[in-house]
Simulated assay, not measured.
Amino acid sequence: MLLVPALLFGIPWWTLVVGGQSWPVAVVVALTAVAVAAFAGLPLLMAAGHGRRHLDAAARVGDTTLGVAWVLFTWTVLGQLVELVLAFAGMPDPLRSRVVAAGVLVVTLGLLAHGTAEALRLPRVRRRDVVLDRLGPGLDGLRVVVLADTHFGPLDRTRWSQRVARVVAGLEPDVLVHAGDLADGDVADRAHEVRPVAELTAPLGRFSIVGNHEHFSGAAQWVQHLRGLGWQPLVNAHGVVERGGDRLVVAGVDDPTGTPDLRAALSGVAPDLPVLLLAHQPSQVRAAIAAGVDLQISGHTHGGQIWPFHLLVRLDQKQISGLRRHGERTQLYVSRGTGFWGPPLRIFAPSEITVLTLRTPG
């Protein structure tokens, strides 16, 4: 619990302040005080912002501190490698350490500006055709628009939600799905942010599932809220989409934070019908393969959100974005997410609104 924050702040402190730069004493003292304050304050801010009290002001400051610290940590580690190269090249200190410190700061500030713009911008529309072997001709060309990981939370994004809703409406979805992590916090606090997206329509159905963050906030209240707005929350349950005499099963399972039960979700489903499964975490595809699911749609990973965090995400989730086949029948599409969690940053992991067009073979 102490080692990770110590490294997160200690390596940047060494690289920028006391690692051979020979800054004036007043500069060293001031920057050291900032590092100590961030080290001590981050866990307190995160606990107050994302714990039971849900203090949005604390969450905003804590999330921003975490994001800046992670980016700074990443590039000071890389800066240390550059410093080794410069040392072998014969560049002396304090020039060498000052050059590295300046380079790290320039790169970090540039990436923070870029990452903030990426996080707050309107997500890009990503389109993919997905061929399902068992899909009937009446459903050929069915447009499934996917939202995931909107994470409406401490930073009020009502205007962003309105812009996203306009884009989705313009895509004219046949089916609209939300693959979990709709919001962080209680319905009473987040309903106004969620409303523009939640009031979208789709002629063949709107389906949602529970992500791990709904469980942190109280999943039952969000299920009830969406059901009241006309959505069909799928908590170990399924619905059926029909067009042109052909049918598609849309099933959903709970997040592993809760109690996922794919057998219950598919109870009563005819074995010859194609199945589209909403499961928040990509790792749930193992059960989908065993059940003969045709297509699983997931989120959760954010594509890593802040480079190179995707390397850590991949240890838990083997697929972090895109479409891939698993086994003979099952395909898995993983959205990089429509919003962001925590730090308002996306670095080399752009957000998306996804249009999956389902196709029959040939």
Rank of each mutant, 00 (worst) to 15 (best):
P123C: 09
V355A: 11
G79R: 00
A89P: 06
R126A: 13
A288Q: 10
L8K: 06
V275D: 05
G322I: 04
N236T: 11
V27T: 13
V249T: 05
R324G: 10
H302I: 11
T76L: 06
L248E: 08
G138L: 01
V36A: 14
W23L: 13
L3S: 07
D254E: 13
G49W: 00
L66T: 06
R127L: 07
E199N: 08
G218M: 03
A38Y: 04
D186E: 10
G252F: 02
F9E: 02
G115Y: 10
L147E: 02
G362S: 14
D272S: 14
A57S: 13
Q317Y: 03
I297V: 15
W222Q: 15
A220G: 12
L132W: 04
P233C: 11
R127C: 09
G230Y: 01
R96G: 00
D149M: 07
D156P: 05
L345N: 05
H215P: 03
V223I: 15
V293T: 12
A264E: 09
L277I: 14
F216N: 11
D184L: 13
V131G: 05
L277R: 11
A148E: 03
R134C: 06
V334M: 02
G90Y: 06
F207Y: 15
V61N: 04
Q319R: 15
R195Y: 10
T76I: 09
A119R: 01
F152E: 02
I209H: 03
V253Y: 01
H225C: 06
E242G: 05
R206C: 10
T158V: 14
N212M: 03
H238Q: 13
A287Y: 01
V61W: 05
S335Y: 07
R53A: 14
V164Y: 04
L55D: 08
V194M: 08
R286L: 12
G322K: 02
P12E: 05
H310R: 14
Q221A: 09
V99A: 00
P344W: 01
G322F: 00
Q296H: 05
L358S: 12
A251L: 11
V168K: 09
P274C: 09
G304T: 12
A102G: 15
R166S: 14
A169K: 12
T301N: 08
R190F: 03
R157K: 14
L112F: 05
I209S: 08
Q21T: 12
A35Y: 00
H151Q: 14
A101T: 10
A26P: 00
V99I: 01
D129V: 08
H225V: 07
D129N: 14
P137Y: 02
G252A: 09
P123A: 10
R166Y: 00
W307Y: 14
Q305D: 08
G90Q: 06
A69S: 15
G239K: 08
L273A: 13
L95T: 13
L66A: 15
Q80F: 00
V68L: 10
R143T: 11
G299Y: 03
R324A: 15
A33W: 02
T74N: 07
G67K: 04
S321Q: 13
A48D: 12
A191F: 10
T338M: 04
R346Q: 04
I11S: 07
V106Q: 01
A101K: 07
V4H: 01
A188H: 07
T64V: 15
